[in-house]
């Protein structure tokens, strides 16, 4: 039997790698992919807790996370296309119009 903690450690490692991607990379595409990675890490946590705490609610929440992830990707990629069309770049450093 695999202990719950090993799932939690795996999920924490994946989440941390996702945060690294969001904060350190310049390309918007990799930033969006890292957000997907973080959402998946959270989903692993939900399913693991659902299994070990014997409650199906965790799996229902994964369902909602999937919905939000799909919506996020649709809007995020639409924004990416709009930005690329206007600025000819996918580099987050160059998107500094609102920076004070």
């Amino acid at each position: 039997m695999i202990p719950l903690s090993s799932y939690l450690v795996l999920s924490a490692v994946l989440f941390f790698i996702g945060v690294v991607g969001v904060l350190m990379r310049r390309s918007i595409i990799v930033v969006l992919l890292s957000i997907e990675l973080m959402l998946n890490a959270v989903n692993i946590n939900f399913v693991a807790f659902s299994h070990y705490l014997e409650s199906i609610t965790g799996q229902v929440f994964v369902f909602f996370t999937l919905t939000v992830a799909a919506a996020e990707v649709a809007v995020g990629l639409a924004l990416l296309i709009a930005i690329y069309r206007n600025r000819r770049t996918v580099n987050v450093e160059e998107l500094d119009v609102m920076k004070w």
Partner: peptide, 26 residues
Amino acid sequence: YAGAILVLYLFVLMLLNVRTQSRHLH
């Protein structure tokens, strides 16, 4: 995830034809 979301990513990548950059870290 694999069937819809990542295909959307690949589709947009092919559409934009993004060039690789010399520097990758923020």
